[in-house]
Every structure is written in C-alpha cells, then in structure tokens.
Simulated assay, not measured.
Amino acid sequence: MDARQRQLLDAAITVLGTRGTRHLTHRAVDEAAALPTGSTSNRYRTREALLTGVLTRILEAETAGWNHLAANLDPIDPDTFATTLGTLVHRLATTDRTLTLARLAIFAEAAHQPALRQHIAHGQRQLATWATPLLAALGARHPATAQRLLLALVDGLLNHQLANPDPAFEPTPAIAALLPAILAARPN
C-alpha cells in the first residue's frame, strides 16, 4: 500500500469513525484527506471498493496491535495476558476510538455485503493463526473455542464502552475474571 492509499484510507476511517457510514462518500474522503475532488474515486471507483480498502487498512492496524500484544507476553501467564489485553482494549476504546468505530461500521456493512464478510473471515483466520497457539500456551483446553470466546468478550467490552463511554473504563478486571472460564471452555 502506497502513501497516497494510506492517506485516503486513513481519511475514510476518520469519516466512518466520526460521522458514520451514511457520510462515507468519495467527496467526504477527499475533503478529510485534504486532496482534490476525484482523488478517492480515482483509486476506489465504487463505494464497495472503498469499503474493502478501508477494511484492509483497519485489519492492518488491528493486526499490528495484536502483534504488539503478543510481543509483550514474555513470560506468558494468565495475569500478564489479562493485563496486556486489557491495555489493548482500553487503547482501542480511547486513543483508537475512531478506528474501532470505523471497524464496527464496516462490520455492520458486511451484514449486507458478502465480499466484506469474506474479507472479515480472512482477517479472523489470520488472527487465529497466532492467537490459538498463544491461548494453548496459556493452558486453553480447546484453543479455537477460547479464541472465539475471547474475541466475543473483547467485542462486547468495546461495544459497551463505545456506545456508552465510562470515564473510568478499565477492562482488565473483566478479562482477568473471565479468562479462566474461557481457557476451560469446551468446544461449542
């Protein structure tokens, strides 16, 4: 991805995360990127192409966050994992709030666009390739099940915090409390 693509997609993320999906237009992205009219449509001819590009950029940013989490888990133990994941979730709900809101907007669009669903599924499979062994190292009986449950917990914490922000938001205690049950979960 070249610098211009990143600039356009980051602007589109800003539009999505601050104004919502109905405001995502090529013109709005051009304005947010401070580029001439037509710049976005030259790279992304359709709204669907733009949404796919945005999703790619979001997954790139979130994968970097998850990789950073994994890099900070030495030694790996449930307490360190809960604290590190809690820090990531807190950042996603605060510092990276716009990115996270854009992701949620894209996920809502994916309910009606099979191509976006396939792209999301691919991203989830990539996440599972390193998350599943990590959860196995934490002692998960069924790492794939634990990974799905952990993502559901993270998404739930984020959804609640984004919809009704609590200034005292601290996700680590919830993660620490539920992590033993997640690690002990049986396949569903």
Rank of each mutant, 00 (worst) to 15 (best):
T84L: 12
D155E: 12
A61C: 13
Q113M: 09
H119W: 06
R103N: 10
L9D: 00
A93D: 03
E62T: 13
T21S: 15
R148N: 02
Q124F: 12
L134H: 04
A102D: 05
I58N: 06
T56S: 14
R4I: 10
D30F: 05
Q113D: 12
A33Q: 06
R103P: 04
T56R: 15
L138Q: 01
H122E: 15
T80W: 10
A11F: 03
L151E: 03
R103D: 11
R47S: 08
A82S: 15
L151P: 00
L24F: 03
R45G: 05
R19D: 01
W130T: 14
T40G: 02
A121V: 06
L35S: 04
H160K: 07
I182D: 00
N188P: 02
H119Q: 15
L101F: 02
Q5P: 01
L8A: 02
S41P: 07
P78L: 10
P143D: 04
P187L: 08
G139S: 08
H26P: 05
R27Y: 09
R27G: 08
L99T: 04
G86N: 04
L69H: 02
A131K: 07
L85I: 13
P165H: 05
H23L: 15
N164Y: 09
A184G: 11
D10E: 12
P173W: 00
D155M: 08
Q161G: 03
N42T: 05
T129P: 03
D155G: 07
P114H: 10
A185R: 06
G139P: 03
T98D: 13
L135N: 00
S39T: 13
A11I: 07
D74G: 09
G156E: 07
R117K: 13
R91M: 04
T83V: 09
A93Q: 02
T63A: 11
T37V: 11
N72H: 15
V15T: 01
A70K: 01
A82V: 12
L150W: 01
H26W: 06
N72T: 14
L24Y: 11
L138P: 00
H90W: 10
R4V: 14
I76E: 07
P167F: 04
V54C: 10
L9M: 07
H26L: 09
T46P: 05
A176Y: 08
E31T: 15
T56W: 02
H160C: 08
A71V: 09
A140E: 00
A176H: 12
W130L: 14
R148F: 04
L157G: 00
L59F: 14
A137C: 13
T145Y: 01
F169Q: 01
L35H: 01
R186A: 09
T172V: 10
L153S: 02
T63N: 12
A144Y: 06
I13A: 03
H119R: 15
N188W: 06
A176P: 02
L162H: 01
A61H: 14
H122K: 13
A33Y: 00
A111L: 14
A176D: 11
I13Y: 01
I182H: 00
R45W: 12
R117S: 09
A136R: 08
A64P: 05
H119V: 08
A82N: 08
T132Q: 13
T132E: 14
H122S: 14
A174F: 04
